[in-house]
């Protein structure tokens, strides 16, 4: 498989866009015309060829540019990557998981050679060739989690399991939908989810937590989550709210198609072997409204989902300022025809 890596930006002049292939493989998250929270967890099994679910770790045309954007964010704010001292074993587990998966599924891009603890990692797109000793952090230029997540698309949180709870004790979070690792670090599953509306009353988090506490090695799971972002910006963090918050007021009927993006997070969870920790990957996909409506079913459906969305959810996701403008724009692409069940384009 060959991937052509686009040169694009996620800030300032925002040159990010999707190729027609990227639009076709977009993980559209709505399987019906309405949306509400649920314990939407399924096995992270290999999906259809070319889809984002084909491999456990998905590398796409935005890889090189996303990694560059992550480096810029980290240079400005090193606290986006943090790890408590007891998480070092989990960090190495993550190195193993990501390197093995990337090398196995993208052999033209990545090569991993393991000779006992002596490992050699070749990353062709980023021009890296690193020999190191697995388990010895002094043989890598960055701590292990930071090293590998500077080379893998998506944000990552490492959760320690103790006292029948999960604790966010490490992470690389540079493209988050308005939450902060620096604020959440050391918190448990119920604490960091506290700001989410309605879900508590539906006992969603207790059920999800019980499920995750029993997550087994070799049986990863995934779920989809979504929000919206103005401009194709990865770093929509509370830390930099001043740089992007005001963009929400800039949406007009003329620029909806270009500016308003649906942001989908493919979240996968693995039990890690040596540490018994869980890794939570948040792999984000952005698509603007012009691109989205090239798939008629998605245009109809997203119009309806957005129109019917509970106000609490719209408020929490930060859509209130531009929701109506977007619904009006999408209405032109919804002829009222029925939509077929499932995520796929018709």
């Amino acid at each position: 498989m060959t991937v052509h890596f686009k040169q694009e930006t996620f800030r300032d002049d925002y040159t990010y866009s999707n190729s027609p292939e990227a639009i076709r493989r977009f993980p559209f998250p709505f399987d019906k015309d309405e949306y509400m929270y649920s314990v939407n967890i399924e096995q992270h099994m290999p999906g259809p060829a070319k889809s984002p679910f084909e491999f456990p770790i998905d590398i796409d045309e935005h890889y090189v540019s996303e990694m560059r954007d992550r480096a810029i964010t980290l240079a400005q704010d090193p606290k986006r990557c943090q790890s408590l001292p007891h998480m070092i074993t989990a960090e190495w587990d993550l190195v193993e998981l990501l390197m093995e998966s990337m090398a196995k599924h993208y052999p033209e891009l990545f090569t991993l050679t393991q000779d006992g603890d002596r490992w050699r990692w070749i990353n062709r797109p980023l021009d890296i060739d690193q020999t190191f000793t697995f388990g010895d952090a002094s043989t890598l230029p960055y701590p292990p989690m930071e090293y590998i997540t500077r080379q893998c698309q998506g944000d990552f949180a490492l959760l320690d399991q103790r006292l029948d709870n999960l604790w966010m004790d490490a992470g690389m979070i540079t493209s988050q939908a308005d939450w902060s690792l620096d604020f959440d670090i050391g918190m448990n599953f119920l604490e960091w989810h506290a700001p989410v509306p309605l879900a508590k009353d539906m006992a969603i988090f207790e059920r999800a937590l019980k499920f995750l506490l029993n997550l087994q090695q070799g049986r990863p799971v995934r779920r989809l989550n979504w929000t919206m972002t103005i401009n194709p910006r990865l770093d929509t963090s509370p830390e930099n709210y001043d740089k992007w918050g005001a963009d929400r007021a800039t949406v007009t009927p003329e620029n909806v198609g270009r500016k308003v993006h649906l942001r989908v997070e493919l979240q996968a969870m693995w039990r890690l072997p040596r540490s018994n920790a869980i890794v939570f990957s948040i792999r984000g996909y952005l698509i603007n409204m012009d691109e989205l409506v090239t798939v008629p079913k998605w245009a109809r459906r997203f119009h309806r989902v957005l129109r019917e969305l509970r106000p609490e959810l719209a408020e929490y996701k930060g859509l209130t300022r531009y929701r109506q403008t977007t619904i009006d724009w999408l209405a032109k692409h919804d002829d009222g025809a029925p939509t077929s069940p499932g995520f796929q384009p018709d």
Binding site: D160, Q216, Q217
Partner: peptide, 12 residues
């Protein structure tokens, strides 16, 4: 079966 851990160390 795959290993399962119900008796983890409290690493901190």
């Amino acid at each position: 079966t795959m290993p399962v851990n119900l008796f983890p160390l409290f690493h901190p």
